[in-house]
Nucleic acid binder design. Structure first.
Lengths: 207, 207, 207, 207
DNA sequence: CGCTAACCGAGACGGTACGTCTCGTCTTAAA
DNA sequence: TTTAAGACGAGACGTACCGTCTCGGTTAGCG
């Protein structure tokens, strides 16, 4: 119904910037449509007209914030374990920081609350990030460092799923050591039998 | 301040039952204190007096609902892979069912929203469940089926983290095949080198 | 703070009509803000925004109900006693009727409860009514029917004060005879000595 | 139903004292049953058992407070005008004082709210006070200072009604001058024609 | 002189209304 | 027609009291 050609670019970007700013400095429960509108100096109706609610604004804001071109592809140094350690250490560092993980927290809450949001978030934000890891694994498989018979999507989830679980459920600290340990475990599972090296893990049980 | 000895057991259980019922039949956003009070035939003040808000009620309701004795310990048939497949298949089946997973969805949202809730939920609901898996793995390690050098907490997260990630992010279907595949991958990572069998996984890449 | 130019006339009048209707059909204690809002099909906030509570709404409702132009001026037939009997009989008849006096009862309770309400009620509702009587007495004084040295405000209170006292305190029936008797007594007090006729009153003592 | 012989005198008097104290230091709206019970160190049920609610407690409290023997009879110096001036000046002084008139305010509100309360208040508190004035007037009538044909109840209301009206409606200041003026006006109406002196009133109109 | 029934304080209970907050829609005036 | 502004109907929030009910613990009067 609204005529997109008349849409105010000034308002659009003010809204997205306000949403990101509020995400970073307040609890997600305080990120109300009224707060965004007020901070952006915009009428509430402008938000409801073009997005329809808080969720879609947050999604757009983060897409915009994290770079509309999507994440850069992972480096491929040839050292699979080293490359994956860098990725997982980065993920774990972001999750461990309350400020940095605020956006992920917001996205997760919204994802759990709305199917529609979940799909859009997955396709427009998450998938591109996971695909960078998947591509690295695909290259590794071509190089014979990963078994031919593993589903690469499963492989990605094996790598990062545990960290997200630990973050959400607060079951333990998110450290570099944890990241490295998980990379070891995952690679042990993924490497071809012939190539498989001896040890993974190495820590004793947590108390 | 309130005198617990005068607390009405009738009201307490009516409230918890109402909360579970509403969780299963409505969106989490519709689970208001007023709705719980009304459904339970109880004054709002009774909820605020003993719990203080929606979150703690939901937590208690689920602790009560899932059995106050905690989850039963896992069977140990000697077949580690078989036992773990049963566990992960059960988890995946619950997550795949919209009705059954409503409680987990609610808990996760509340966990992401409140630190205090997160801690209580982790200690009173989640930990006991994870510990049953941990104990099964400990037995397996004693039997030489799991490497001595893995942190069992990490092992548990390796096993179930991917499924929760897939559930939350909707990155793919949650099937028995997925559960079995993840058990294979995890066990490949966990088994001592000497015992390690050839294949894990087996599916081609998802499209 | 609210912008009066955007105020909804539809809501304003619906609220005032609802208040009058409820005043006439229920006890004053049942005249809650929620009941008014519900009956008027209006959000509670609209009442709190423009009035601030029950009292001011009731005041406005009655000002609106009794005619925003104020009471009509009293007739002046030249017969002072006759004119005043009409006034006091009308007052007494209204007070004697439970339904008709419901509004006066409400106003009086609110007046006794709030200084601010008391002032607004006096200036906007009561004073205009008392002034009509005062004007009639002023005309009578000009015609030599009332002594020059009486304070006309005192004269008005001498006339109507007893009836209100009897109504409030239920010390006796409010009849036409009572009204006439009080007019006689008051006029006896007010008439110039030269004009003063013999008898006032006439009833024997009440039992 | 309750057995009066077992009633606790300690509680009874604590409740009445608490009610009077709260009446004098708070708004009438703050005089809740819970506040009385708490101040008196008494269970709420004790109040509901013996009185049934706030109104009856207030009534009893004031009867108790103002002296259970009722008001003393008026002095009769032979000077009717002087005696009545004392009475009306006392009434007016009490009404003019916010603290002293708090009890009258409370009684009036309750009287307007409940028929049952109104009757009990009238018979047990008000009538005895009015009767002292009535008796003084009866003596005056016997002495030929008041006309034989006036209803003494009407005469009492003529005397005090205006002051109560002015108090309630805040239509003007309650001063000794006002009291004296009203006594003059009333006596002018009440005196036998033969005895009637020239002037009553004397103030010019209020501005 | 002990039993026992009613009182007592305390305060939890199911309710109702309060006054506030935020939602998502609707209305207005300016650009 | 879109915008900023903000009033609107709706309804949940958390609090205060209502009047009733349920506890143990006195306390008085009958046996």
């Amino acid at each position: 119904m609204p005529d997109a050609s008349r849409r105010s670019e000034r308002s659009r970007s003010a809204i997205l910037r306000a949403a990101v700013a509020l995400l970073e400095e307040k609890e997600y429960a305080d990120l109300t449509v009224e707060a965004i509108a007020s901070r952006a100096g915009v009428g509430k109706q402008t938000i409801y007209r073009w997005w329809g609610g808080r969720g879609p604004v947050v999604l757009d804001a983060l897409i915009d914030h994290l770079g509309p071109d999507g994440p850069p592809s992972l480096p491929d140094t040839g050292d699979l374990e080293g490359d994956l350690r860098l990725v997982l250490r980065a993920i774990v560092a972001e999750l461990a920081d309350r400020r940095l993980s605020a956006t992920t927290r917001a996205l997760t809450i919204e994802t759990l609350s709305s199917d529609e949001f979940a799909e859009r978030m997955r396709d427009r934000l998450l998938r591109p990030q996971l695909d960078t890891i998947k591509e690295r694994l695909r290259a590794a498989r071509a190089a014979g460092q990963v078994r031919d018979d593993v589903d690469l999507d499963h492989a990605v989830e094996l790598l990062i799923g545990p960290a997200y679980h630990r973050w959400m459920m607060r079951t333990g600290p998110l450290t570099e050591g944890y990241a490295d340990d998980m990379v070891d475990l995952a690679l042990t599972a993924l490497r071809p039998a012939a190539v498989r090296s001896g040890a993974a893990g190495g820590a004793a049980d947590s108390p």
